[in-house]
Amino acid sequence: MTYSGDVTSGGAPAVRELDRLTITKVSVGPMDNNAYLLRCRDTGEQVLIDAANEAPRLVELVGDGGLAAVVTTHRHMDHWVALEEVVVKTGARPLVHADDADGLPIDAETLTDGDTVAVGGCSLEVIHLKGHTPGSIALLYRDPAGTPHLFTGDSLFPGGVGNTDQDPERFGQLIDDVEHKLFDRLPDETWFYPGHGKDSTLGAERPSVPQWRARGW
């Protein structure tokens, strides 16, 4: 089945098989958060992005393969409700950007811009996108056999950047980081996976970036 990225809360996961990495996307309630389980196809090692909710369901998704780490994209509660339970049940290392570490319910190892997170033989680059929260991050996987894949949390969605509570300074920080660290660096075919809702590509969204900047949200 062709991967579309369309998932619904309580519905079946969507699975994408890349050359070296398997991406499983699932929506969990009650706020339809996306969680992403990444598995290295060479080693079987797994990393979860955002243990948002429904811990038993996420642990079931992990299965018997074990979980090396849980990366939290930012400190908003709807992205970490299941974090503590998933970590306790799997022994995974919790990871978060240093500027958002105090917003999590458990102690976590801290990340900074430019760090890498290993998924077996694969590697995710940490990209700090300040504005939605002080420590919001995206995670970039550069597929050696294909297009880049980008996990954006709540910093970038189809149709705009994340919520900055109508704060002009925070919006300016976020739109600048999204434009310069993502759109200026990565090609149109880059597929991105947000914290809620459907996926998109940078190419589909690129023409709208000046409109986003002009409208201020």
Rank of each mutant, 00 (worst) to 15 (best):
F157E: 07
K89I: 03
V59G: 05
T164D: 02
G66K: 09
A69W: 00
A12M: 13
V96G: 12
V71S: 08
E189P: 04
W212P: 05
W212A: 00
V209A: 02
D42Q: 15
I137W: 01
G103I: 05
T2K: 13
D99T: 08
L150G: 05
V117H: 09
R41M: 14
V71K: 11
Q211W: 08
T22P: 04
T152D: 06
L129K: 06
N33S: 13
G160R: 15
V117D: 03
L37R: 07
E179S: 00
G131F: 08
A52T: 01
F183L: 00
E109V: 07
V81R: 14
V70W: 04
D78E: 13
D167P: 10
W217K: 11
S9N: 10
G197S: 09
D6N: 11
P94L: 11
W191E: 14
I23V: 15
G5M: 04
A52M: 01
T22N: 07
A35V: 12
G131H: 05
T8D: 06
I127R: 01
L156N: 11
T43G: 15
E109S: 06
V178L: 02
P105Q: 11
T164P: 00
Q46P: 01
Y3R: 11
V7S: 05
G195C: 05
A69P: 09
L129N: 09
Y36T: 07
I175D: 00
D102Y: 15
Y3P: 14
C122K: 04
A204I: 08
L156K: 10
T90S: 09
T24S: 13
V62W: 07
L111W: 00
R215N: 04
V26L: 15
H74L: 12
G103F: 08
A92G: 07
D143C: 03
T43F: 15
G162P: 14
L61T: 03
V88Q: 14
V71L: 11
V119A: 09
I127K: 02
E54T: 09
I49H: 00
L150E: 00
A118N: 12
H180A: 00
N34L: 10
